[in-house]
Design a protein around this nucleic acid. Structure first.
Lengths: 143, 143
DNA sequence: AGGCCAGTCTTGACTCATTCAAGATTAGTG
DNA sequence: CACTAATCTTGAATGAGTCAAGACTGGCCT
């Protein structure tokens, strides 16, 4: 992924190509699962004076356009990633909060057909696995 | 569920039986999926002068003890329910934020065996279905 | 190439759910 | 009944995220 690629991504979804958006796209792509603060810092290594608000705006816009995906496990601040449209899910470490991607064991959208949806029109099933990452798991061994 | 029942629940998990905790337990049981503010209001109908902090503390303690379950869909404040230990999930309305319970279509814990867990020790799979509730779905019909 | 203007960005203040802290109360125990 | 640690009250603080007004600029049109 190079700068021209990101420009093209933006044009493909009819968004203006601005410095902040390019910086944010690149930051999210380079730091998957980064929180907003990290995205701000990473973006500033490309465009030193981007305001935090521009990053927030860009993240919102890019999320709506489907170029980035927002994930927000309970107890964590918002995090972002560029892997979209491939129905993967996340494992979150209860101890340190680190996140990793996982593809669902079943090949199709998991449990999208709930047994009784109470009349809700469901369009997405979000799955979050909770547990301990290898490091934290090793640090607190079962007695 | 009556007052003595809630008292017993608390004793069963070795928690002190206090007025705030009883009020909170009752409030959450009576108002499933209520947010903290609603729990505070409902608790005060039982114990008029409970502080908001006591409610926060109680909710945390009860959650740790497993008597209530905390759910926090992205974009929503924390909500609580007393249905625990039965592996059910939730549908959340994208429009109005209302929540309903759903049991997973597959009879077992959904996708708990991720295809590649990156060494994480997974102990829970949380599923959130996103969509529109009957009311909102009717209010914004497909053209 | 130059100019227009709606969409973006900057700056700075603000919201509000949640947490922190210190001192007063109270539930359970001997 | 008294004791003590757990719990509650009060009041202030935190911080991710939002709002708003004015400045700037990317894309388009001539």
């Amino acid at each position: 992924m190079t700068a021209p690629d990101f420009q093209q991504l933006l044009r493909d979804v009819d968004l203006r190509v601005t410095q902040p958006r390019l910086a944010v796209l690149q930051a999210v792509h380079t730091h998957p699962h980064a929180d907003t603060e990290s995205v701000i810092v990473a973006s500033r290594s490309v465009v030193p004076d981007v305001s935090h608000q521009a990053v927030y705006d860009s993240l919102h816009t890019l999320t709506e356009a489907g170029l980035v995906r927002r994930i927000k496990p309970a107890g964590s601040v918002a995090r972002y990633e560029t892997r979209t449209d491939d129905n993967h899910h996340h494992v979150v470490c209860r101890s340190c909060g680190s996140i990793a991607d996982v593809d669902c064991a079943v090949g199709h959208v998991p449990c999208l057909t709930a047994s009784d949806s109470h009349g809700f029109v469901i369009d997405e099933a979000e799955v979050i696995y909770w547990g301990l990452c290898p490091d934290c798991s090793a640090a607190t061994p079962r007695p």
